[in-house]
């Protein structure tokens, strides 16, 4: 059986190096083109797994970051010289807050600088989102070296339960509304949730116990990730991209050719 997808570590180091390269070069064009190529890679190569939507979430989050960064950049900030776009009224602040200014002149330079910063941050977050789309953090944890493997398995189990707790929290909140409760009382909400999670953890512990968890001292791995020439050929240029950021665009494209396709499994 062929290696289904690249080793999770290869994907994460690829995305990580691209993020470093973008941050180092601080060039908008490079960031836009790298994120664009990464988006293509995600669409073509991402796993059909619960985490596959991370990239989309990361993009939405990035968009919010840009919006918030620009909003803050316009309202609060030091005066920057340049072409005046518009003038906001200055809010009077107490004397002990000297140095902070709300409102004032908004110049083209100030606007573009904040937008640039916001975009860089969003691009880095998008790259991390892409990494979890391409190979879920759970797979990364599962491929940890033997010494910390047990720890990794425990973290995987703990985080797999999270979505269920979110679901039961929603269910309980709904039930409270149905009982005519419009005020949000923490006790009334937290108690059923706590009881629910407690009985769930007891069930989980019993299930793990009867499936032999912790019984054998050694664990084996289902579908162990294999580190082969493909991983090397993706990782080496990725590291190079950290040194020469302009190289990042081509490294991003390289993943398209090195990763095995989803369709030919």
């Amino acid at each position: 059986m062929a290696n289904r997808t690249l080793h999770p570590l290869a994907w994460w180091s690829w995305a990580g190096s691209l993020a470093i390269a973008i941050a180092k070069s601080n060039s908008l064009i490079l960031a836009v083109s790298v994120v664009g190529v990464v988006a293509v890679v995600v669409v073509k190569k991402s796993e059909r797994a619960p985490w596959a939507n991370s990239f989309r979430w990361a993009l939405t989050m990035g968009l919010w970051i840009i919006v918030i960064r620009i909003f803050i950049g316009i309202t609060i900030g030091v005066p920057t010289y340049g072409r005046t776009l518009f003038v906001l009224p200055i809010v009077a602040l107490p004397s002990w807050m000297a140095g902070v200014r709300i409102g004032g002149v908004v110049t083209l330079e100030r606007l573009s600088a904040t937008a640039h910063e916001g975009f860089m941050l969003a691009a880095i977050i998008a790259l991390l989102g892409a990494a979890s789309s391409l190979s879920s953090p759970h797979r990364l944890l599962r491929s940890l070296p033997v010494m910390v493997y047990e720890f990794g398995v425990a973290v995987v189990i703990a985080t797999s339960v999270l979505p269920q707790i979110v679901i039961s929290a929603g269910r309980i909140r709904q039930a409270q509304t149905l009982r005519g409760q419009s005020s949000k009382s923490l006790r009334r909400f937290a108690l059923p949730l706590l009881e629910d999670s407690l009985s769930r953890s007891l069930d989980l512990a019993a299930a793990m116990d009867s499936r032999g968890y912790g019984f054998s001292r050694k664990r084996s791995r289902y579908r162990p990730s294999i580190w082969s020439y493909r991983e090397f050929s993706l990782m080496l240029p990725s590291l190079a991209a950290i040194i020469i950021p302009a190289f990042a665009f081509f490294v991003a494209i390289a993943a398209l050719f090195l990763a095995p396709g989803r369709d030919n499994q």
Partner: peptide, 8 residues
């Protein structure tokens, strides 16, 4: 559902 340990 209470006894599942993995996500896939």
């Amino acid at each position: 559902l209470n006894g599942f340990v993995a996500d896939k």
